[in-house]
Nucleic acid binder design. Structure first.
Length: 266
DNA sequence: ATGTCGTGGACGCCACGA
């Protein structure tokens, strides 16, 4: 089975490009983030025509996550137990956001995750990001604890660059989000919960990224970040035979600012 | 070979998020 994750940055703007990529990439399951649409706006029929069933969770023009599969799609669940919401005023009620969905595809529970950006270190969004990651870890740990043989994939845009080599210049990120010690601790805590990041060993750096900002010619200048990952439970990680980052998809007009991150399973 | 992109609201720009 081939399992991919891709922040598509609007499925309506990217529909034909995503479909064309699916048709030639031999991907069986694709987790998408930032679909930027409500459920009724998702182009389910176009995916169905090329053989993929889709579970989508979108509440507004922000966020939006989906799992597309051509090997079965069962028990789709939006969110996860304990998922926090957000409001820019911490005193107000926190609004739910469409940042997580999961479904079982050929025996694997695949999560599509869009971790909050954090914005600035002093922003409430940063606290939200850390809380969101901690709650996700607690949920994933409980799910694995209930069945240690479960095949679980936590895939998506983590908005964390875990290693210094995951950004093009650490000095530029001094005092910024994505590289702060608490964010990195929150990321590595998944390892302690039994979830191993499986793509890096097959796509070693430095200079290997999954995201390049649209501004300032960052892609041709190779100023990117590695922030998209796949964290697998032990039973799933044992099946991994390879991984790749399709940076060709970042090229040309109409590209997402993220590249697909692909894992091959036996 | 490329000097941001996408969405929505009230337009033909602005606000917002990234």
């Amino acid at each position: 089975m081939r399992l991919a994750t891709w922040n598509v940055n609007s499925i309506r703007a990217r529909r034909d490009r995503v479909l064309a990529w699916l048709e030639r990439s031999e991907v069986d399951v694709l987790a998408m983030q930032e679909t930027k649409c409500k459920d009724e706006q998702f182009p389910h029929e176009a995916f169905r025509e090329i053989g993929y069933e889709v579970a989508h969770h979108g509440l507004s023009q922000w966020n939006g996550v989906a799992v597309a599969s051509r090997v079965g799609l069962e028990d789709a669940r939006p969110g996860f137990d304990g998922m926090p919401g957000f409001h820019k005023d911490p005193e107000m009620a926190q609004d739910p956001e469409a940042r997580a969905i999961s479904a079982v595809c050929d025996g694997v529970r695949v999560y599509s995750l869009y971790i909050p950006n954090g914005r600035e270190l002093a922003d409430p969004h940063y606290t939200y990001k850390l809380d969101w990651l901690a709650r996700l870890r607690e949920h994933a740990a409980a799910e694995l604890n209930a069945d240690p043989s479960a095949q679980i994939a936590l895939t998506g845009d983590f908005n964390v660059a875990p290693e210094d080599e995951d950004v093009w210049d650490m000095e530029v990120f001094d005092g910024k989000t994505h590289v702060s010690p608490p964010e990195r601790e929150a990321f590595f805590a998944f390892d302690g919960a039994g979830f191993r990041e499986v793509t890096r060993e097959h796509t070693p750096g430095p200079g290997v990224y999954t995201y390049w900002d649209y501004t300032g010619l960052s892609f041709p200048k190779r100023k990117g970040m590695r922030i998209d990952f796949q964290l697998h439970s032990p039973a799933l990680a044992a099946r991994v035979t390879g991984a790749s980052i399709d940076r060709e998809e970042r090229k040309g007009k109409g590209a997402s600012d993220h590249a697909p991150v692909v894992v091959d399973l036996d």
